[in-house]
Design a protein around this nucleic acid. Structure first.
Lengths: 163, 163
DNA sequence: GTATGAAATTTCATACTTGAACTATTTTCA
DNA sequence: TGAAAATAGTTCAAGTATGAAATTTCATAC
């Protein structure tokens, strides 16, 4: 490693506790995400966003409208269009017109998509369990409680968050 | 809200505690990131990745090489190229050849970049404090400790992580 | 009945992100 | 020395992400 990175905290780093907590949380989240993304790519040739969409569709068996998907996943609506397009191309998902509203489309998992998702979800849980192996169940509860305190004031919460 | 989203937990949701903790953590992180990204865009017409690069450069006054930047930020090296390009175009950053190694480039904050960063960093901290207002300093410490337990086994850790 | 505005999606421009392929340089060591 | 391996960066293709503008359809007030 070069000199620049070696001399670490060149500055006093006077950070508030909250900023420090946020940065640590961000780093841990990215670490886990990177690991999971890589394994999805290597073992299932898929991506995290695709998995997220399939997970949402799996939860709601009747399917979700495009706008419901973007709300549930908290991503821009234009974004969902592309991801669903690729899932349709892969035969994992189907677009169904909504009776009575020609504007809307319902997105539904196909049998193939549902089966693929089941397999991926089970493995995904193993990956998470593995990365969280040093985190006790009690600490998990504490994390859950703590996370819910963060940025959760009405001012920040976007509407329509599924519990 | 439509029917699909209204009937929430259609499935039993038998999640392990660890999976639950991870999902909650991911959701909170995205909530905070989305908020910060939006404010960066509205108030400074910049982006989170640009800010991250500037933050790294601000910490190391001597500048960082491209590869050091990508290591410090844990992003692909090809990624840094584009972000630095735009920072150069904005006059926030300078590329300096490294004496004795014609392959490498040192990236350094300009005076303008450093000033801009100072202002942004101060405001950024306020945003974080705001979103973490319900999180006590003690809980912050607990979060820091917990985050360090996650995915931190040697198997997952990429090399060269700055402390 | 029709203007008018709201809602559901798509399209677009821009930016970020990754991993892989490629170029250029430096280092290693037989 | 000089070929092979390692290192530093850029370029590339594909995918993800955003917000804004445009399109089509729906709902409603008049």
């Amino acid at each position: 490693m070069s000199e620049a990175l070696a001399e670490e905290s060149a500055k006093p780093e006077v950070k508030s506790q909250r900023l420090r907590a946020w940065l640590r949380m961000l780093k841990a989240t990215r670490r886990v995400e990177a690991h999971i993304r890589e394994r999805f790519r290597l073992e299932f040739e898929t991506t995290l966003p695709r998995f997220d969409v399939m997970a949402a569709l799996d939860r709601f068996e009747g399917g979700l409208k495009m706008s419901e998907l973007s709300t549930a996943l908290r991503v821009a609506n234009g974004n969902v269009t592309g991801i669903v397009e690729r899932l349709v191309a892969d035969g994992a998902v189907l677009r169904v017109p909504v009776a009575g509203d020609k504007r809307a489309t319902l997105v539904v998992l196909t049998k193939k998509g549902r089966d693929e998702f089941s397999a991926m979800a089970a493995t995904h849980r193993l990956w998470v369990d593995e990365m969280f192996e040093r985190v006790s169940p009690e600490l998990c509860d504490q994390i859950v409680a703590a996370m819910d305190l963060i940025g959760a004031s009405p001012a920040y919460a976007k509407k329509g968050e599924p519990a």
